[in-house]
């Protein structure tokens, strides 16, 4: 089907034509965090599978996640998850037909970004507080 229409038709401008705006970046980041989480969940399944296999293998995965590199990945995972969840809440609000006023949309985008960072830090600081270590 697509091959039969080869005549030059006007195209809509591509992404780089537009001035970057926060709402637009947030939309792109929602998709990127979604894809990161898509692959990130492999780590979670690996963790559970390791426990199902043996105590030694589970201890190994625990030490991998306890390593500073593992912690950096988990920190990023936490932020991506919270950012995507908060973004999802915005979408659910829009699905009800509310929250489309432009200044509100802008305000919600900022709130989403700020809350995702604050909640991620709060979670990690909270863990450090309770356990005395990360």
């Amino acid at each position: 089907m697509a091959e039969t229409h080869t005549d030059q038709r006007p195209l809509s401008p591509h992404l780089q034509i537009y001035r970057p705006m926060l709402t637009m970046m947030m939309s792109i980041v929602h998709r990127i965090t979604g894809m990161a989480l898509y692959f990130g969940i492999i780590l979670l399944v690996w963790w559970l599978m390791a426990a199902a296999i043996s105590a030694e293998y589970f201890a190994l995965t625990q030490s991998v996640f306890g390593h500073w590199l593992g912690k950096i990945v988990l920190f990023g995972f936490t932020w991506a998850l919270l950012h995507h969840m908060l973004g999802g809440l915005r979408h659910l609000l829009w699905d009800t037909g509310h929250g489309f006023k432009l200044n509100l949309v802008e305000w919600l985008a900022r709130l989403n970004l700020a809350l995702s960072i604050i909640l991620t830090l709060a979670l990690w600081i909270g863990v450090y507080w309770v356990r005395g270590t990360l």
Binding site: S54, A55, F58, A59, Q62, G66, T78, L81, L123, R131
Partner: peptide, 14 residues
């Protein structure tokens, strides 16, 4: 799930 993971940070298999 987040709570479950946090609860088992550094835990052993048992």
């Amino acid at each position: 799930l987040i709570a479950f993971i946090l609860w088992h940070l550094g835990a052993d298999r048992a």
